[in-house]
Design a protein around this nucleic acid. Structure first.
Lengths: 344, 344
DNA sequence: CTGAAAGCGCTAACAT
DNA sequence: ATGTTAGCGCTTTCAG
C-alpha cells in the first residue's frame, strides 16, 4: 500500500501538497494538482483512514448500539442509518448488546472516542450512567427512539410520539366498534412501551369503553403468540388485540390461526411500527407506522451537529441544554388485519 | 481522554512500560505493574484504537459486505459474524452494497486495509475483479457462502453444498408422493442459485418424475408470491412448490392462501436456508437448513488465518493455493408446510 | 526489569 | 503556491 509520501515523491512535491490537493485545502497550482492526481492513481494510492483519524483527532465511524440485529426492526433502521451516515463520510459499526448492559459498556469503553466519534443508541438496554460517562469523556451520544416527547431524557435524542401511536391504534379499534380489546405490551425490562400503552388506555377510556385485559410479553413473534393465547383463553369474548409492537401482533395473528379464529372476521389485530413484515404477513397487518427512515436521518444529523460542536468545546462538557428532535407523527396504516367485530 | 503518556507520568514510569503492562509484553515487575494498573483506572484510561491501529499497522475491524441487511438472512448471519469477530478482538463494519457493484467498490477502496484488516463477502453482487484487487493490495478477502464445493472460486471461501440442499428438498417432495412440482429459483443477477436448482432437478430426474415448471424470481417474499401465482395459474395441477430460498417460499405460501389453497393440504411448499421466519410462519415452513452460525464461524476463522499469514508475507501476494472451508451438510427440517399430495 | 528513541501515515499551522 | 516542522497516541526495537 503506497503512502502519501510515496505519492509526493513520485509527483516531485512534498507530502503537505499532496494532502492539500486530496482535501482541497490550501490552494495548489492547477498543474501541480494534476501531477499529484496522476501520481495518486499511477500508484493506486488510498488514504490510510486510521492514520488520518489519528492526525485529525477524529474517527470516520459511528457506533450503532442495538439489542440484537436479529429483531427485524433494527436491520431496517440500520440500513437507514448507514445511508445517512455515508452522507457525512461515516462508516457504521454495529454493536449488538444482546440486551446485556455489560456488553454494551464494553463496546462503549472500547470504541467510543477512539474508533467512533459518535454513538447512536436504540433500545439496547444500556445503562444510562454508561451513556453519560461516554458523553462526559467527549463522545456525543444520541438516543434514537425516545418514546416521550414531553419527558426528555437527560440525553440528546430524537423522540417519536409513541403515546399518540397507542392512541391511534386504540381509536381505530374503537371506531370499528370493538369493545373487548386485549393488549399485549412489550416488557423489555424497563417497561419501555409504557407510553404506547398509555395512549391506548387513554383512547379506550375516552370512549368510555370497558378496559380490557393486558398481558406483558417479550418483543417477539413467539412472545405475542403466547400472550395472545393466554388473553384469548382467559376471555374468549375479546374481539380485538392491540400490541405495542408489530412482532407480537404478528404472533397474535398466529395464535388466532391456531385457535381457529379468522382475522379480521373473528379477531382484529393491530400493532405499532410498520416493519417490512407487517406488509408481508397474511393478512397484512394494520399498524401505526413510525417514520423509521426519518428518525434515522434526524438521529444522524443531530449526532453530527453534536460532534462538530464538541470539537469547539474544551473538555467534554458540551451544550448547555440537551437537544431533542421530534419526528413527524406516527400514522395509522389500515391493512387487512382489522375490521368490524362480528357478533358471535 | 487521558493518553498513555499521562498514565505513565501518573505512575512514574515511561510510556513504554505502560504499553508493556497493558499488553503483557516485556516482563514488568509486579509492583510496577500494579502502579500502572492503578494509574490506568484512576485516570479512566482507554487505549486509543486508531492510534494503536496505526502503530501496529493493523486495524481492529472486519468489513462485512452484504447486498442489503434488510434481507432477513443477513442480520442473522451478521449477528453470528459479530460474535465470532469479537472473539478475536474485532469490530464489524456493515457495508450495504444494495446490489450495486460501484457501492461495493467504494467500500472496498476506502476501508480495506486502512480501517479493516479483512473483508467478509456474502452474496453482495460485487465485482470479482475488485475483490482480487483488494486482495492484491494485501487485505484478505473471504467469500462466505460459496455454493459449489466442487468448483472453487479463485478466492478463499467457505462453501456450503447447496446442490445437496436442492436435492434434499426435491427428494423430500418426491418421497411424499408429489409429481407436479413447481420451482421458484432466485435470479440474483448472476444465476447464483443455480446449484440449488440443479440438485433439485437431479433428484426429480432420478425419480423419473416429470420435470415441473420453473420461474425465476427475486429473493423476496413478494417475488415468491408473484412467481407462485404465475406457476399455479399456469398449471393448477401442481401439488408442490420448491423455492431456492425461504423468503420466496414464504411468498408462495401467501399466494396459496390468496388462491384459497390450503398448505400443505392442497399445496406443499419447501424452501432453503432456515431463516428465523421459517420457524415463525403459519404453517411453519419445511426447509433445508444451512448451518449459518457455523459458516460465520468458519469464515471469520479462515479470515483470521489469512490475516495472520499475510503479515508474514512481503507484499500482498499471499498463499500459493486458495483455501476453502466446507461447512457441514445442509439438513432437511420438516415442519408443517409439506405433506402428501391429496388427490384433487 | 525499565527507559530512550524512532516512527506508523497523515494533517495542520507556519514559513517561505 | 509550495515547503517545513511538528506532532496525533501508541508500539517497539534497542540500550541501560
Amino acid at each position: 500500500m503506497p503512502t502519501l509520501s510515496e505519492v509526493a515523491r513520485h509527483a516531485g512535491v512534498t507530502p503537505a501538497t499532496v494532502s492539500n490537493v486530496l482535501r482541497n485545502r490550501g490552494r495548489v497550482g492547477a498543474t501541480t494538482r494534476q501531477r499529484v492526481l496522476d501520481a495518486v492513481d499511477a500508484l493506486g494510492y488510498r488514504p490510510h483512514l486510521a492514520a488520518r483519524a489519528l492526525a485529525e483527532g477524529r474517527a470516520p465511524t459511528l457506533a450503532l448500539m442495538v439489542s440484537s440485529i436479529a429483531n427485524p426492526f433494527y436491520p431496517e433502521f440500520a440500513l437507514a442509518v448507514e445511508h445517512a451516515a455515508r452522507g457525512s463520510g461515516h462508516f457504521v459499526i454495529i454493536c449488538n448488546t444482546n440486551e446485556d448492559p455489560l456488553t454494551g459498556r464494553a463496546y462503549l469503553d472500547q470504541i467510543a472516542g477512539t474508533l467512533s466519534e459518535g454513538v447512536l443508541v436504540t433500545n439496547a438496554n444500556l445503562d444510562f450512567a454508561d451513556l453519560h460517562a461516554t458523553e462526559a469523556r467527549g463522545t456525543p451520544v444520541v438516543l434514537c427512539m425516545w418514546e416521550r416527547p414531553n419527558e426528555p431524557p437527560g440525553l440528546p435524542c430524537v423522540a417519536v410520539d409513541f403515546r399518540l401511536a397507542g392512541e391511534l391504534a386504540g381509536t381505530h379499534l374503537l371506531t370499528l366498534g370493538h369493545r373487548g380489546i386485549g393488549a399485549i405490551v412489550g416488557s423489555k425490562a424497563s417497561g419501555i412501551h409504557a407510553a404506547r400503552y398509555e395512549g391506548f388506555v387513554d383512547a379506550v377510556r375516552a370512549a368510555g369503553a370497558p378496559k380490557g385485559r393486558v398481558k406483558h410479553a417479550p418483543d417477539t413473534i413467539q412472545g405475542g403468540y403466547t400472550a395472545a393465547r393466554a388473553l384469548l383463553e382467559a376471555d374468549p369474548t375479546l374481539t380485538a388485540i392491540f400490541a405495542t409492537n408489530d412482532l407480537p401482533a404478528l404472533g397474535a395473528m398466529h395464535a388466532a390461526a391456531d385457535l381457529g379464529l379468522n382475522v379480521p372476521g373473528d379477531l382484529s389485530v393491530i400493532g405499532i411500527t410498520d416493519i417490512q413484515l407487517a406488509r408481508e404477513s397474511r393478512p397484512a397487518l394494520t399498524t401505526v407506522a413510525v417514520p423509521t427512515v426519518e428518525v434515522a436521518g434526524l438521529a444522524v444529523s443531530l449526532l453530527r451537529e453534536l460532534i462538530e460542536s464538541s470539537y469547539g468545546q474544551a473538555g467534554g462538557q458540551v451544550a448547555t441544554n440537551v437537544p431533542m428532535r421530534i419526528s413527524s407523527a406516527p400514522q395509522l396504516v389500515i391493512r387487512a388485519s382489522t375490521g368490524a367485530p362480528r357478533p358471535r
